[in-house]
Computed example of a mutant assay.
Amino acid sequence: MEIVLDDKQRQEIQCLIVQAVNKGVEQASNTRPYLSRKEIAQYFGVGESTITHWASLGMPVAIVDGRKLYGKRSITQWLESKEKQQKSL
């Protein structure tokens, strides 16, 4: 059995494959509980400098073999605790 595709069909299939791979990579990265500073900044939609600032304010940071890792759940909880403090002011 042989399948013959013209250039347009080949290009459409390539685009679909690239989209599927990119979506898979995105989903895989979102399931990791700990991310790098760059990744956590993207996750929360802020700049890397904001993550550094938040860490100086007491945001939880895990250090493993000298590498800083940022937990999505623990940072979310930390941010929520700051939100509650603001409500009581």
Rank of each mutant, 00 (worst) to 15 (best):
N30Q: 09
K72A: 07
K84Q: 14
S81Q: 15
G47S: 09
N30E: 06
G71H: 04
A55E: 05
Q27I: 12
I40Y: 00
S88N: 14
F44I: 04
L35W: 05
I75Q: 00
C15M: 15
I3M: 07
K82L: 15
S74D: 15
P33A: 07
L89H: 03
G71V: 01
I40F: 02
Q19K: 07
N30M: 10
Q19I: 00
K84N: 13
R73D: 13
I63K: 11
K87G: 08
Q77P: 00
T50S: 08
V64Y: 03
D7Q: 14
K82Y: 08
A55Y: 01
L69A: 10
W78P: 00
V18M: 03
V46A: 04
P60G: 04
W54F: 01
I3L: 09
K23C: 12
Q85C: 08
R10T: 15
E83A: 12
G66E: 09
D65K: 07
A20M: 01
S74P: 06
S56Q: 10
I3N: 04
Q11Y: 13
E48V: 09
K72I: 10
V18L: 06
L79V: 09
L16F: 03
L79Y: 01
I51E: 06
V4H: 07
L16H: 10
A28N: 02
G45P: 02
S36M: 06
E83S: 11
S74G: 07
L79H: 05
E2L: 13
S36Y: 02
L35K: 10
A20C: 02
G47F: 01
S88E: 15
S74T: 13
L89V: 09
M59E: 00
G71K: 02
E26W: 00
Q42M: 03
R32Q: 11
E83M: 10
P33L: 03
V64P: 05
T76R: 13
G71N: 06
Q27M: 09
K84T: 14
G66Y: 04
Y70D: 13
K23S: 11
V46S: 04
Q14K: 07
K68G: 12
I40G: 01
Q19A: 07
R67D: 13
C15I: 15
S81H: 12
A62Y: 03
S88K: 14
I51L: 05
W78S: 02
T76I: 10
G66T: 10
R32N: 02
I3Q: 02
Q42R: 05
T31G: 03
K72Y: 05
Q42L: 02
T52W: 00
V61A: 00
I63Q: 08
A62E: 11
M59D: 02
R67S: 13
S81P: 10
A55Q: 05
V21W: 00
E48W: 03
